[in-house]
Write a protein that binds this DNA or RNA. Sequence first.
DNA 1: GCAAAAGTGTTGTCCTTACACCCATGC
DNA 2: GCATGGGTGTAAGGACAACACTTTTGC
Lengths: 264, 264
Amino acid sequence: MLPLKLVPAGLVIRIFCYMKKKITVPVPPDKGIIKDAVSLVTSYPKVPLTVDCVIFGFKENKLKVLLIKSDLDMFNGKLSLLGDIVQDNEELDAAAYRVLKQRTGMNDVFLDQVRVFGSPKRHPGGRVITIAYCSLLNINHHELKIHDNDLHWHTVSTLKDMAFDHKQIVDACYTWLQKRIQEHPLGFNLLPDKFSLRELQNLYEAILGVTLDRRNFRKKFASMDLLIDIDEMEQDVPHRPGKLYKFNFEKYEKNKRKWVGIDF
Amino acid sequence: MLPLKLVPAGLVIRIFCYMKKKITVPVPPDKGIIKDAVSLVTSYPKVPLTVDCVIFGFKENKLKVLLIKSDLDMFNGKLSLLGDIVQDNEELDAAAYRVLKQRTGMNDVFLDQVRVFGSPKRHPGGRVITIAYCSLLNINHHELKIHDNDLHWHTVSTLKDMAFDHKQIVDACYTWLQKRIQEHPLGFNLLPDKFSLRELQNLYEAILGVTLDRRNFRKKFASMDLLIDIDEMEQDVPHRPGKLYKFNFEKYEKNKRKWVGIDF
DNA sequence: GCAAAAGTGTTGTCCTTACACCCATGC
DNA sequence: GCATGGGTGTAAGGACAACACTTTTGC
């Protein structure tokens, strides 16, 4: 065991799941030693597997998500996530990156698996399991050139009524993002390389749905010492221009917090 | 927007994933409006889907995980997680609960999805996607009655060399647990209903792999006011007996922390 | 009485919060 | 010169970290 110094920022515990289910099931069958793995696997029931990407962007101080209109007739043009079938022999992450690349042309993007949605009834055409991926990208880094299926950025806060269970998936990813952005500097993926503190604060306020004290926010980031002052100013703003910064990825990686504590 | 009071325990940000991948892919085909969802889904490639349960317990001050010996001949008795195929029309969580119930007889257990493992080569019999679930249970609440495939509790810290990618899965769940136990009072699922503060501290120390200051630990939990002093003492200990407590689930649920802050 | 663990308080430090005024720029 | 947001400091309170001695019980 390591001797521990509890770090100052300390003990944190938040949500709690105490799940109860009453289920009755038979005792598992004992199959003995299995020689032929291939025929075993062949005997398994199979389901189609997709990835769905919740691609977040940030524009005009609003969190946006990239959506299309569903191409399923029965959904009658309801909004849908970008997704695709996972190909044979394709890694799951690779499938998600492929969707991103196909739709945005970007391949240099944050991506993380969030969770699986696999309710038997979630797809009207039969059971389809989908793995939800969350991506963050800077909207200005690319323009949507392919507008198939009315591809567009939709404001997250005004979203409702999507195809499939996609609203649930967006909600899960949004909750995931809200939590993650407080623990990791993910937000920088949504901003240009150079950004002002105001933009950074707007991002946090928009995602967390709160207002923050400007002085304390600036002090916080200043004390973390992870922003590089690039000695440039904003251009073309109708007020006093702010300083621009870059995020210091190297320094962050070096000094990553080993976080130990308890805080429910 | 809510006016925000940043909570005292404050701003926290920890790990950071900045993933980059270079991928070239074709533009997605435009299929037009699809009338027949069923035949669309039927046309999809399909894969077998399983759940694997990482079932943690706590005994003799060590974190344990419930394992069997693999019944695949080629793994030659290597250790394996408890898993099963997801049945047609079965909810994913239900499949995981079913595995738990089959193997432990318990149906009143913490369970949460952790992530999907779907590398094409992870199963020697062909591609099989598995969803990893993490469970926490009190070892004393049941005894393993069915010892098929040498079902047993294995100390987590001495685990190596498992069948499939199961070591990776255990590692992912262990990391997940370490993080979660600091944010949510999950640990109580691993303890008896009545426990002493020493047991609680041992649990935290074992899972986090650290040593904690006893006085500070006690003060922390005392100040959270989530433990019910049931006015009983430990029995049959070869030293001064400690007080026993229960966890106050209702109170916790009521006062769940709304946690807003930034702390990388 | 000895071993083993229970139980208990204080102090210093650091972080967070709350809060108000002047400054630079574009128009 | 006016509107807009940029930029700055301080004081009070709260949480955490460090640290040692007495008490209770079983043997």
